[in-house]
Amino acid sequence: MRAITIGMVGIGQLGLPIATNLLAAGFRVVGYRRRDREAFVGLGGIALSSPAEVATEADFILTCLPSEDAQLDVMEGPQGLLAALRSGHTLIEMGTYERAFKERLAARIESKGARVLEAEVSGSPPLVLARKASLFLGGEPSLIEHCQPVLSAIADLQFRIGEFGSAVAMKLIANYLLTIHTLAAAEALNLGVRAGFSAEKVVEVIRQSAGGSTMFSVRAPMMASRSFQPAPGPLVTLEKYLEMAGALSADLGCASPLFSVAQSYFNRARELGMGEEDIAAVIKLIEADSHARPQSE
């Protein structure tokens, strides 16, 4: 029986740890990226010259691209994926885009006789590599079952959200909370330090208390050690999710007092040139906005 070949288009910051997990599971993985392919090849991946060539060799095709423009760029043209798709292909779309865009693209893919599953990744690249991220899936249960060998090699935690296009909303809800929790972690750590505790003591105690959260456990140690670069979650990459989550909330008429404040802090951090630092660096703004402690008489 021929081994399954998985094709990846987009083997950058998020795609590379996904490819790493697939290779570790024993799959043959071929991939396309315009540049910086050395890390992928070094892991055992096979770099190809075009998206079409990836489709020609692969049984499953994963696209993991940062924007709608980037997605269209690899889909269209004589060397694009659409030109090479055939009946029997399954495409797993892992980018975060507007639902309407995803649905239009899915119709074009299905017109070629291929099937497409939505798989939103919830978790930073290090969490993906450690298999602690989760997948939010949009598609028919039978298609999810068909993709299980691939999906299970990427992440243990998987949730079927609903039909194709539904998973992006859940991803935005997760990132909505991520921003709030990260800012809250910064506030709590700053409060603890100003109350006279070491940052390390605050991290040790709070992460194990009822007030702890995933983002406190991940980001508070980074805040305590001032480890903002290299950034597993750069501020610059958060901008798209903030805009999309804010638009979703506004479209649904939701009150969003906490998110609005968190969004303003992260936007301000980018404007101050902190874009390449991890989102944990938001603590620097919290510290700067804190008043001098009153002197005791």
Score class of each variant (00 low, 15 high):
residue 236 V to L: 14
residue 144 I to D: 04
residue 129 L to K: 10
residue 86 R to A: 14
residue 37 R to G: 03
residue 54 V to M: 06
residue 44 G to S: 14
residue 125 P to A: 05
residue 155 A to S: 15
residue 140 E to N: 04
residue 264 S to Y: 07
residue 86 R to F: 12
residue 60 F to L: 09
residue 168 V to N: 01
residue 221 P to F: 05
residue 48 L to I: 11
residue 110 E to P: 01
residue 89 H to W: 06
residue 122 S to W: 02
residue 229 Q to W: 00
residue 124 S to G: 05
residue 131 R to D: 03
residue 260 S to N: 11
residue 196 G to P: 09
residue 150 V to D: 10
residue 103 E to V: 08
residue 224 A to N: 02
residue 192 G to A: 07
residue 89 H to D: 14
residue 251 D to T: 01
residue 170 M to Y: 06
residue 194 R to E: 06
residue 239 E to A: 14
residue 120 E to H: 01
residue 62 L to W: 02
residue 143 L to V: 06
residue 127 L to V: 06
residue 7 G to P: 09
residue 102 K to C: 00
residue 132 K to F: 00
residue 72 L to P: 00
residue 235 L to V: 03
residue 152 S to F: 01
residue 94 M to A: 05
residue 97 Y to I: 03
residue 121 V to Q: 01
residue 73 D to N: 11
residue 238 L to S: 08
residue 33 R to C: 09
residue 135 L to W: 06
residue 284 K to E: 15
residue 186 A to E: 01
residue 87 S to R: 12
residue 26 G to C: 13
residue 258 L to S: 05
residue 146 H to Q: 14
residue 108 R to G: 03
residue 234 P to F: 10
residue 218 V to M: 06
residue 14 L to N: 08
residue 281 A to G: 06
residue 1 M to Y: 09
residue 286 I to L: 10
residue 165 G to K: 00
residue 78 P to F: 06
residue 281 A to W: 07
residue 208 Q to F: 01
residue 176 Y to T: 00
residue 250 A to N: 07
residue 107 A to F: 02
residue 103 E to W: 01
residue 109 I to P: 05
residue 35 R to S: 15
residue 280 A to D: 11
residue 253 G to I: 08
residue 159 F to S: 07
residue 59 D to H: 15
residue 52 A to Q: 05
residue 59 D to E: 15
residue 49 S to E: 15
residue 189 L to P: 02
residue 164 F to S: 00
residue 206 I to C: 00
residue 127 L to M: 14
residue 35 R to F: 13
residue 280 A to K: 09
residue 199 A to M: 04
residue 280 A to E: 07
residue 192 G to C: 08
residue 209 S to E: 04
residue 160 R to A: 13
residue 203 V to S: 04
residue 55 A to L: 13
residue 129 L to D: 06
residue 37 R to W: 08
residue 31 G to S: 07
residue 183 L to E: 05
residue 179 T to Y: 09
residue 82 L to M: 12
residue 272 L to G: 04
residue 49 S to Y: 02
residue 26 G to Y: 15
residue 297 E to D: 10
residue 218 V to K: 06
residue 191 L to M: 11
residue 10 G to V: 10
residue 16 L to Y: 03
residue 236 V to H: 12
residue 221 P to M: 06
residue 44 G to H: 09
residue 241 Y to C: 01
residue 259 F to W: 12
residue 108 R to D: 04
residue 95 G to T: 01
